[in-house]
Structure formats: structure tokens, C-alpha cells
Design a protein around this nucleic acid. Sequence first.
DNA 1: GCCAAGAAAGTGATCGGTAACACCAGTATT
DNA 2: AATACTGGTGTTACCGATCACTTTCTTGGC
Lengths: 348, 348
Amino acid sequence: MAQEAVAQEAMTQGKAKAPTIYDVAALAGVSHQTVSRYFKAPGGLKPATLERVEKALAELHYTPNLAARSLRSREHYRVVVVVPEASLYFPARMLNGAAAAAHSAGYRVDVVAIEGTAEARAHQLETLLGGEDIAGILSFVPRPKGSPAARHSQAIPMVVAGEYDNKMRARGSLADGAAARKIVEHLASLGHRNFFHVAGPTAWPSARNRRAVYEETVAELGLVSLGVAVGDWSPASGYAAGRKIAAIKDVTAVFAANDQMAIGVMRALHEHGLAVPDDVSVFGWDDMAESSFLIPTLSSVHMDLEALGARSMSELIARIRGQQPATEALSLAPMELVFRESTARVRA
Amino acid sequence: MAQEAVAQEAMTQGKAKAPTIYDVAALAGVSHQTVSRYFKAPGGLKPATLERVEKALAELHYTPNLAARSLRSREHYRVVVVVPEASLYFPARMLNGAAAAAHSAGYRVDVVAIEGTAEARAHQLETLLGGEDIAGILSFVPRPKGSPAARHSQAIPMVVAGEYDNKMRARGSLADGAAARKIVEHLASLGHRNFFHVAGPTAWPSARNRRAVYEETVAELGLVSLGVAVGDWSPASGYAAGRKIAAIKDVTAVFAANDQMAIGVMRALHEHGLAVPDDVSVFGWDDMAESSFLIPTLSSVHMDLEALGARSMSELIARIRGQQPATEALSLAPMELVFRESTARVRA
DNA sequence: GCCAAGAAAGTGATCGGTAACACCAGTATT
DNA sequence: AATACTGGTGTTACCGATCACTTTCTTGGC
């Protein structure tokens, strides 16, 4: 009776509860299993049956109940995206790209910010991996040195964005580092000889990569690197590096691993009476929206960050499905140098 | 037999499949239902039973299978967070705060970026609400004018962050607008009389609010507003506003609704030979990490954005649970004016 | 010391899918 | 002609929780 009342209420309110495969099967005149089979491999049905199922499906606006599905099949449709604590300095566009890619593949995205001390972070990751209902992990945070959750990681597919940069570099392909090389070459072509690099944290592959290419290229071209400061991507760390640079005096070209640190560098130089680009040229990386409106406007590297995020996610999903990632997913998004006011010919 | 083999394999591999309430019940010597009851209301158990259950729980490291739970109970543990397409200009810290709050309440967070034309966005929202397995929606995007998915929204709890600003303002409390008032007052105290406001998109309550308070305060203090430009939060839109301001000439104080637009304004003024703060003072909002390293450093409003995001999420979760949101969740996070180089006494 | 009533715990059905197997015609093999 | 195989479909059990109901244990009043 209560059942009836509920059903009736649902009817009158038009808030029909979601149709199940049984509803679909009844309408199509087949068994529920046939409907289930349809989703697994539509090709396995007889054309006539297939058509009837599809018609019923469309008529009822059926959407599968993921909870029921994953309960039985033990497959999961939730990927966890780990973003750095300092997501202030983390390009949100990468996250968007990754989320969009996951959604279009039918996965849910859970965003988790990893924060606190190294120990606390390891613990967070541990409990994260413990929640047995996740299909995979996409981390924008570099993998901790000691593999902390080694026994889990066998089970759950995990992609650490940026790690493949290393592979690419090893393969000598046009990876992240290619732009770093072009930056140094460009500055050299403007007459600069004395360089300084503000690197990102060593834990980040992209930071290591940019730094390595910087040092390589400076050496190759017979230039001088007057030092490398390791920052944490923040403007404040760039500022600290900038003070060092100002103290050195001879530096005329600075390459910062991201725009935010470049902003800090420029500020510090300004406070020490050094003009950009008259006294020192500064090159950034990421091409933030603000960079073309700074005073001076900042030369930088423009990347398609959405694409980058989407590709990382594609790689993860391929791995979840046990497929080979599409080669396209492994190649890097195109990047482009943007020359602005902050870099100029060295003063005579 | 096959069963046995599997069990044995699991034993030897140490890859025991996740324990269920039946395992817990067996270990504790009670029925599975008692374990289920434990999670619903631990108080309903006899102290002796409770202790045994808890011991078994701890021993097995039991974690509930959310898929099974939500299949039966029709409750869901996934909230969708909607962020604006232009998330470049959206403070990621709010997202972090919201995600953290949701996680600590046992909910999964799915981040969706709403993009495209108004029509496409409405459609996205529609399908989003169609996916019947979500507990609630937290939108950082203003609600579209016409309630598009009205028939759904009855069912799914939805909180639009920032909307309560309006309520607060209506109540005359110390809301978002209070800082706007202080900004105008401060600039007036520095001798400024001719103001200009660069507002955010009209669809955003916070933008409307800041603008309204700006106009109110200017009128109250007998100052002059030489215009209001409506931007889209981007530096580029600030730049466009800055060109207008430069053309007006008499403006000596600009209040921008966020730091990014303020950066655009400063750039435009610079290009027209107007110095900040010597000729024009500029005040921003949000206190981005970069703001204290710009040239000149930018006066701004510092807010605890994590707290803001967390409170919005708390409100949503309360609504999901049918509770009254904690009053604390409704009050605004404290905000604080930060005075930097970009604002100075008006030139004699 | 007995019985009614409420508290505590147990039993079996159920949610909406998938897995495993049975079944059944039609074809291929021996 | 009997058997094996195969593609297409139906039948039943099962995943791990909660729900509705039943049963057992306490407790209190007389």
C-alpha cells in the first residue's frame, strides 16, 4: 500500500524514478540480460533485437546506475586528481582539461588537494589509495622519492603528470626542454652572455628538465651561467632569487621557470634600481593571462594547458582500461615562445 | 572448489578483498545488521556489543562500500562543483576549501567546468542534473537568469556561492560590500574626489554588490563617480576600462573588482603616460599572490578564500542533510584591506 | 515471580546491475 | 544419424549494503 502511494505520488509529480534495465527490457520485449549485453558489446545482438533495445532505451531516457554496476563488476568510474597544496601556482586550466577528458570518457573526477608536511602528505596519499573504490589516480604533484604506497600502487593505475616529459627528453624528442633551449638561444642572439636561472622545486620533473636544458644550452653556446636559484613556483621565491641576482650585478639575462617567479624577480630588480629590460632581460614560462599586461610585459612560453591536462587524463584512462595510450596522448602539447617587453638587446 | 581456489590465492597473495559488514559481524559475533546499525546510530547498541563491533571494525580496517550503500539507500555521496569557464580568473583556493570540507564530511567532489554559450551551458547543467547519482551541486557560477532546470532543482540541493552575499547585504550586515565602502572611504581620506569603478560581470552577485556599495558610498560622501566599466574579471577587460579612464583624464582613483582587472587598468594607464599612484590610485580585490610583487605593488582586499569555499560547501552539505546550516557557515569570511604602493595621496 | 512493553539483535528481501551457466536452434564434423 | 560447436538469448545467483519485519532480551510495575 505504501508502495502504491509512493508510485502514485511519483506519477503525479512527474518525478518518475530512474528506469532500470528491467524497464527497458520489458518495453523492448527482451530479457534484462540482453539489455545489459547491449552495453557491453552492441555488436553481439541480432540487428532486429538491437534496434528494439535501442528504441526502448531512447524512449525511457535510460542512464545506467553506476553504483549497481560497480557493485557487481567491481569496476570503478571515479578517478582522483591530486593537485598541489600551492594550487595558487598551479594552472587551473590543466585541471579543467583533465576533468573534461575524464567526463567524456564516463568517469567521475574527484579533486583532492594534498597538503601539509611530507609525512602528512604521504599519509593522505595512503588513505586515498585505501578507499578501494577508485579507478585511477592522476597526480599533478610529483611522486615522492621513496615509493610510499608501493604495495597499493600495484593495484591502482596512477599517472603522474609531467613524468613523461623525462621520457620524452630521454628520447630526444621535442619535449618541454625544447622551449628552454630556444629561450637561451634567443637571449644569446640579443647579445646576452651572463645568465641566471630561477628553477622550480627539484621534485618536479618539468623543473628539473628546464634547468638541465638551460645548463646544457648555456654550456653548448659558450655562455656563462652565473647561478641557479631553486624556487617553489611562488612570486615570493622569485623575489628572493631576484635579490641574489641583483647582488651578482653582472647578470643580464634571467630565465625563470614560471611567470610568477619572474614577477618576483622583476620586483626585486626594480627595488635594487635595475631596470627590465634595460639592465636585465627576464623570460618567464606559462604565459599567464596577466603576463601581457605587466609593466613591462613579460616574455614567456605559451602552452595549451587544457590539452596537457586532457592528455594526461587520456593516458590514465588508457591505463585503467589496460590499453596502450594513444601516441597522441604521449606527445607534448605544442608550445610557443612569446616575446614581449621584458627581453631586449643587451645594453652596449 | 573454484571459490576455495580464489580464497586461497587471496590468502597467499595477501591481497585480501575488502572486508564487508558480514566479515565484521562474524568476527564480532553479531549479525550483519547490528554492524549496519552501528554506523547509523552507535548509541543504539548495548555498550558491550558496541565495543565488540568497534574492535572488529578496527581489526579488519573496514571501510564501507559506498556503491552498495547508495544502491540500497538511494542516497549519494558525490557533490558536483561547478566552476566558471574562465577559471583562469577564478581563485583556486576557494575550490580547495570547498573540496576539503566535502571530503571531511565523507563526500566525493566532482569538478565540472561549465563552458560555451549560454545555451550550451544550460544544456550542460541539464545533463548534469540528469545524472541521478549526485547529492548536491555547489556552483561558483552565478545562476542563469531564467531558472533553466527548474523541475530538477526541486530534487537536488544546490548552493550558488555568493548568492548569500545579497541576503547579507539586505540584512545590513558586514558583508562583502563593507570592504568596498572602506576602499572608497580610504581613497577619499587621501584626498581623492573623482572616482571610477571597474566592475565584474553583472551576473555575479559579488560584482553587483561591490558596485552598488561603491555607488552608494560615493554618493554619501559627496564624491564624484566619473563612470563604471563592466569587465569580465580578465586583465584584458581591465585594460579596456583603463583606456576609457585615461580618456576621461580627471579620474584620480580607480576601484577594480578584482586584481586581474586592476592589472589591466594599470597597464593601460601606463601606456597613456599616467603614473600609478602619482597620477591615479588603483585599488584591487582578492590579493592575489602576485599583487604584492607588481610594480607598483597593488592595494587590495585580502580574503580567506579557502574558508569562503569551505563555508559554501558546509551550507550545501547541511542542505543535503536537511539540516539548518550552521550560522557560522552563513557569515562571511573576514576580509582585510591591504594598502600598498598603488594608492597614494592625491597630487596637489 | 509474572507479564506487558520497549530495547536490542536477528532474518530475509531488496536495490540495479553483471557473471555464470543453461538453453535452443542451426550448422559443421565424424 | 549422432555429436559437437556456435551465436543469440533467457534464468538464476550474486555484489554489499539498508529496510521492514520478526524474534529475543531487558526492564519495570504489580
